[in-house]
Design a protein around this nucleic acid. Sequence first.
DNA 1: AAATAAATAGAATATAATTCCAAAAAACGG
DNA 2: CCGTTTTTTGGAATTATATTCTATTTATTT
Lengths: 279, 279
Amino acid sequence: MIIPKIHNAFAHLTETEQKIASYILEVPEKVVNMTAKELANECGTVASAVNRMCKSIGVEGFAKLKISLATAVGKESGNEKNIPFDKEDDTELIFNKVFNSGINTLKNTCQMIDFSEVEEISKILASAQRIFIFGVGTSSVVASDAAYRFSQLDVQAYAYTDILQMNVMASNMKKGDVAFGISHSGRTKAVVDAMRCANKAGATTIALTSFTKSLLYTESDYSISVYSDEKNYPVEAVSARIAHMCVIDALMLTIASLNYEDYSKHISLRNAALDGIRY
Amino acid sequence: MIIPKIHNAFAHLTETEQKIASYILEVPEKVVNMTAKELANECGTVASAVNRMCKSIGVEGFAKLKISLATAVGKESGNEKNIPFDKEDDTELIFNKVFNSGINTLKNTCQMIDFSEVEEISKILASAQRIFIFGVGTSSVVASDAAYRFSQLDVQAYAYTDILQMNVMASNMKKGDVAFGISHSGRTKAVVDAMRCANKAGATTIALTSFTKSLLYTESDYSISVYSDEKNYPVEAVSARIAHMCVIDALMLTIASLNYEDYSKHISLRNAALDGIRY
DNA sequence: AAATAAATAGAATATAATTCCAAAAAACGG
DNA sequence: CCGTTTTTTGGAATTATATTCTATTTATTT
């Protein structure tokens, strides 16, 4: 992929080269139909600089760069842009926008996740005495889901979505327990408070949020953030919630992979248990 | 898209032009890195013929064709395949697989949805006296989420996830009420029973499931199914649940669009209400 | 402040794309 | 079936674009 390639090389480019690189990163879809001269003009420099820049990022020349860029743009347009909602949208358009936003969020989240951190987290979760999961509002749904999922692995996971109960349970925690806080904004008082309380009580704290700059993210021992670009949304957390659940799913499978035999056994048991409840 | 464009134009191309077009359609990813002369040689003709061919299919010239072709090739490679889970997978691979599966499910779901049906459904939901939402297990989470979302629009929506309560509430329903049943398999006894009960009581029934052949789907007045291809999963319903939630989100926004002013008002109220609960 | 290195712009060159034209092939009309 | 017209084609000429080279400027180092 050319875009990350440019990003990587960016730091050790010269000033004018960076100008050009920035322009390309900004509007790659335009550059694809520009000549070296045109691009140079836009950046206040000359064609040869454009060529030098191509060499600097490890591409044969501008012609090849355009091809690579076009390929990347093609991929990109599979991820159609998030378009703001409009009150005139018809049903089909609304669905397309919602689903596209979800797809984008998942794609971007998967790219920004720090897998070594996640690996740590899954080990901690797997060996925890008890896992108390905290979330309110939209995130209470995610919290319940997480508890349900983790429980399928015979991990002791419990969701608390009631403010009072959250605090009571958090203060009851001990070393070896894990407090798992979920909040889209990362600044929901109830969750932040419960996590602080759990931390004071000696529990390990893990955060799942949508903003790396948030209180919840920075204050926790371990943190995961999903990608978030919801300025276009009239309702926040619409697709972030989806990403949160994907993280939970993936975490669960990661934990499962730590002890595959045990996991298979529990799945069989679970399936047997479910047999009777279906037509 | 350039590929269909070539296909369309193919019939009224001259013999040598067709040779060139065929070659391009066969290995577009190669052509992207060829010069007009090279391509011409491969096809036993000359560069000018390549150019003529570009004009004939309605493209400015060979340079532009290559760009379009590269874009198309990029799109092509964007559709990553679902790969089955393996117990040897490392964390990164697990995350990639989970997220990819989610992305695929969302993509396919959006393509298979019948928007006129959905539009009907949103109108029915918007004008319902009360909406009772039924779901157990994994789908209880989706049911709660749906109730929470719909409530934000000042629609009377309630989730019931307890088997007994589901039946009690279903039998209490009247004409004008809507029973909204959620089940991945579409054959969860509890939900199917509750829906039958609601139907008998005179309520309109709406189903959200992952299989169009399921009891729940076929028995309900209105039905939505998401795409499902989970044979690769050790745990069922992993990404279907994500799609269910996306459907809920989109439904909510569709309902909102029916009465935008009301909706904006409720969102403002909600935001004001949430102000105090955050740091 | 002098020396060295790095970066840049613009001229020179090379390459590839595009246009143009004449020859060849095919289609048409008598 | 032959001459005429149209279409198609290949190759030369042209143009545009990309690429390389070099002198100048700018920055860095000692």
